[in-house]
């Protein structure tokens, strides 16, 4: 199991389109992926769950991944967060 914390860098936060990209990426992997912000937690497969985290710009979220491809999954998601979900020009 690996856990890492990230800061949401894009201006509008984890809104619908970034969340959609996030879910699409998470689904490529077999591992269980959970995203937490404060006391709220959501499965990375649930776009509604992610939206309901209400993670705005600058929010810190923790991603926990457990499973056979956890390393690859974390790498892919970390890249996505660093690239602001490909959301900004």
């Amino acid at each position: 199991m690996i856990v890492r914390e990230f800061t949401v860098l894009n201006k509008v936060g984890l809104h619908a389109r970034p969340a959609a990209v996030f879910v699409a990426t998470a689904r490529k992997f077999k591992s269980d992926i959970v995203v937490e912000k404060g006391r709220k937690r959501a499965s990375a497969r649930s776009i509604l769950g992610l939206l309901t985290l209400g993670a705005g710009h600058g929010a810190v979220v923790a991603i926990t991944i457990e499973g056979e491809d956890e390393q690859e999954a974390m790498k892919a998601l970390a890249e996505l967060v660093a690239n602001k979900f490909g959301d900004e020009e």
Partner: peptide, 14 residues
Amino acid sequence: KIFEAHVLFLQDPT
């Protein structure tokens, strides 16, 4: 792109 989110709503496990 918003429609990508719409499709995902329909697949949302929760």
